[in-house]
Design a protein around this nucleic acid. Structure first.
Lengths: 220, 220, 220, 220
DNA sequence: AATGAATGAGCTTTCATTCAT
DNA sequence: TATGAATGAAAGCTCATTCAT
């Protein structure tokens, strides 16, 4: 006789869990092997389902990848947008907060591998590139720019070139991610990410804050 | 008098030119599509030869790639090593020179695509990763470290942590390359590479030069 | 009522039958063309499937070949081992039985082509050679030797050199197989295999049986 | 200053030697690797010439192989034919002589590899098969048959079935060759070829000689 | 909803043969 | 006569996607 509880067939109980399990498996493998080299069969196996099942939930490999981005990265941008919209303090502190959140939710996380993957393979998958551009880069860029504009409007930042400064702020994140997922693992002398970010922020704020501010140089 | 019919031979014998032509085609395609996605048939076609011809000059795809690295990147490292060995002036100027040379010969060049390719795909091709590690990363790292040690020995630099500072100096080059070959092309607001490098150098020298020194922001 | 249009599905799902069908196709083609010259696409086509399907069931060409050997030859050795272990009569009769079984299950059969193939190509495929050595030759040799030792122990055979006599007993089988799959088909005057085997057995028993025995020429 | 003798350019002096050198290289490689697996480039290299040169002397791979057979095997058949035509003694001695000559000039020699190669690959190269059939097998068969007929005509042999006995006489040679070039090298307990041939001859003569003859059994 | 067998285009590599030099 | 660069048809194997069950 079987246990009277939990008699529902497993697949039924799991109906809602499937997409999560598949996405979790997908993110792992995409991060490990990149987009082109990840085999859908492996994703399915890691999620404990068959290849066909994967196609019930995701139209194809690209849609699966988009879903991974949508669940792992886009929400972080949304949160950052909210931070910018709702923050009440000094813009320098807002900037610090946004960078710190990025580090916690992406940089230090497995998800950073997805960011690196896009920089690595976007060229070969134009549709993915476009999707990522629209959903992540443009929104992220806009968010950072709006943060700068807020600072300028409140006279907390100098009248810098917003577009260019936006790139400068993105750069260290991009670098950390590239480092972590390519050269980094081979190197002995680690690039200490938090110290690096701090240095970068100091440098950036040096260019952003009105002249009267004095910033102590950070230890790299 | 020429024959009025199309007398073009089925092929032309160009033993000496072939390797160059093939390497040129290979570098173009590797940069455009990456290692895995580059088809040897396309390389051959672009060089104006057949698939088989390529194999007369390069044992296989990996060897072709190594040859590309050997001809396009390794010599730049060699030149930098010589610079470090032979330079007579202040170590800060040496540092500037090395960075500038890098920018001219790699960063601003198509070759930068190869550097980016390696960061993108090394994980999937361990033998290539090892080759690049040995021939480029280790040598490059050693070269930069020796430059720092020279500065310290001559009391031109402070007693910094050489290993870590080496990474910091590599980082902006890595970033420029990543930027240029992934996000960059999609962006409107360009990251101005020379300005970026200059900023980085200033920041680095700020940490390197003895406290008494006053450094005017340098134009790279 | 059947649909009057051609409703044949693009493919049919025959999981259980496939391995057999593929092995049957493989054995035919291996026997016809040898190992190196057999194209997996042809094997697949003969089995009525596509190239890819073959790889669902066999990891690669060598594994396919091993599977052919395992299903067609190895069991015959197993059966012979059992015969030797269980036989109760005179060792000369056991020897006759084993040779006769070999003829029925291998020599007279298509499978003999596999034996010939191995002698023909083992030199070019060391891994296959090792496999066949382990699974067939060593086991077969041991089986024949044990048969001889049984005869000697029971005083039914003379104290011959077991190792050498084992080779002698293998030789005619090898010859028949070589003959059948190379010179034989071209020849008009057939080598009558059964008569040949009988002659050989008589000769061998002449050397094996104690002097006092008188053996009537046996019909195998 | 150079030696005044031997000033002719090497290629001129070698003009006549070329075919020999190529044939020698070809026989080595055909024996080592078989027909299909032997690369003409390797043959050329071993002969110390270029691939193109090989094609000056031999139309293609098959013609090269035919030439190998013509120089290494056909003459032995010719010699045997002469023996049969000119021999003056007892036919049994003629038979022994022919077998012994075969052993010395083919069986014990590298050339035996060519015989084995044909049994191994004839099926895949019909034109070679036909050539070998005409030049070697048919002539060889005829030669052996004529030897038997001579014996019968001179009342030195019984009235046996010539066709079948011819096959029986070919068989041990075929077996030795197969053994030597496939299973043999793997086996510990060597099949002693000369003893094996002697046994076979005794057995054959037992069937050939008139009843009054008494033949001592040979030690296998 | 779930499965996994089946497909076939695509890619790297090999080598007999040709032919410009 | 001699060379060896160039060709291109194969062949083994992979994997995203489809679809009968």
């Amino acid at each position: 006789m079987e246990c009277p509880f939990d008699t529902k067939p497993r697949w039924e109980r799991r109906k809602d869990a499937r997409p999560h399990e598949l996405l979790a498996a997908a993110i792992d493998l995409f991060v490990e092997r990149g987009f082109a080299s990840t085999r859908l069969e492996d994703v399915a196996r890691r999620a404990g389902v068959s290849k066909g099942t994967l196609y019930l939930y995701f139209e194809n490999k690209e849609e699966l990848f988009k879903a991974v981005v949508r669940t792992s990265i886009v929400p972080v941008i949304g949160a950052a947008e909210s931070s910018v919209a709702e923050f009440e303090g000094h813009s320098a502190d807002l900037l610090r907060k946004v960078m710190q959140d990025w580090w916690e939710r992406i940089g230090a996380n497995k998800v950073s591998g997805i960011v690196k993957l896009v920089t690595a393979e976007a060229g070969n998958f134009p549709e993915l590139a476009k999707f990522y551009q629209d959903e992540v880069i443009n929104r992220g860029t806009r968010m950072i720019s709006s943060m700068l504009e807020r600072g300028i409007a409140r006279n907390e930042f100098r009248q810098v070139n917003v577009t260019q400064m936006t790139q400068v702020l993105i750069a260290p994140m991009l670098m950390l991610v590239t480092w972590k997922h390519s050269i980094g693992p081979c190197e002995r002398g680690e690039l200490e990410p938090l110290a690096f970010l701090a240095t970068f922020l100091d440098m950036a704020l040096h260019g952003l804050l009105p002249a009267t501010h004095v910033v102590a140089p950070a230890a790299v």
